[in-house]
């Protein structure tokens, strides 16, 4: 379980998060949704200790992120931030292999190599494994970064808009891979999603945020309602049904 207690955050004097207290359940796929600037990414980055905590307390599986050594946390949770252009020229296989670094600290064993191969295959990167990061497309680089987080093999996987740059087929494959991770391997996943129907179709738990506050949280079917979404996005939104799950008709 990830426990968030009274977390507030400012960036350059502008308040981004207001006194947030919530929990992300263990063994579930949790989606953070909300309009641009709601504070979803900031909250995820605070959980993943990519930003220092200013006020409040966050624990991940009992580890206080402010006080637990960062290399210890790297074996509890893997976080993938939003991609920035990097100058590094690594082969995709080398990048994914760094996902094992928190475990072996420079001395990879056979188990580490097997895990890397598995991650490369899981994200259809095996044919690209020897290509350099600056020689593949944005979507392929994105998949390599996800594969690295996947190879880190932690109880918690935190992803900030992982569907960016991915085409439909790879986006769906990623969601189904994450679903399998939760259902069969007992892992917990938290992700910021922009396209709300991915949350509607795959998430167990949804946290809706607006203006730095949590305005609703609960099972996907309870949160993704016409009234709530229309209020969340300040626009009339219809919600239909498809195969027993909500289908948000936001594009028509």
């Amino acid at each position: 379980m990830i426990q968030i207690d009274q977390v507030s955050h400012q960036i350059g004097g502008t308040p981004i998060l207001h006194d947030i207290s919530t929990t992300l359940p263990k063994g579930r796929l949790t989606a953070l949704i909300g309009p641009n600037g709601a504070g979803k990414s900031t909250l995820l980055r605070l959980i993943g200790r990519l930003e220092p905590l200013q006020a409040g307390r966050i624990t991940v599986a009992g580890h206080d992120v402010a006080t637990t050594p960062t290399d210890r946390l790297a074996r509890v949770m893997a976080i993938l931030g939003q991609q920035t252009a990097i100058a590094s020229r690594l082969r995709l296989s080398e990048l994914v292999a760094f996902g094992r670094w928190p475990h072996h600290k420079g001395r990879p064993g056979p188990a580490d190599r097997a895990r890397v191969t598995q991650a490369l295959e899981a994200f259809a990167l095996a044919p690209l494994a020897h290509r350099f990061l600056d020689e593949v497309s944005g979507g392929q680089a994105q998949r390599a970064h996800i594969a690295m987080a996947f190879a880190q093999d932690t109880d918690w996987l935190l992803l900030d808009e992982p569907l960016n740059n991915l085409d439909m087929a790879h986006a769906r494959a990623l969601m189904s891979r994450l679903r399998a991770l939760v259902d069969h391997a007992g892992r917990s996943v938290a992700m910021v999603v922009h396209e709300i129907n991915y949350a509607a179709a795959w998430a167990d738990h949804v946290i809706a945020m607006k203006d730095g506050r949590v305005i609703a949280e609960g099972p996907a079917a309870e949160v993704l309602t016409e009234a709530l979404l229309s209020d969340l996005y300040d626009a009339p939104i219809r919600v239909g049904q498809h195969l027993g799950r909500p289908l948000v008709l936001h594009h028509v």
Binding site: G48, T70, D71, A78, S88, L95, F98, W101, A149
Partner: peptide, 19 residues
């Protein structure tokens, strides 16, 4: 390895538990 990970940016380096 540490310098190579550092070259990947603060975000990735922190995620991998590098100080």
């Amino acid at each position: 390895d540490r310098f190579a990970i550092l070259g990947l940016g603060d975000q990735v380096a922190t995620g991998l538990g590098l100080s």
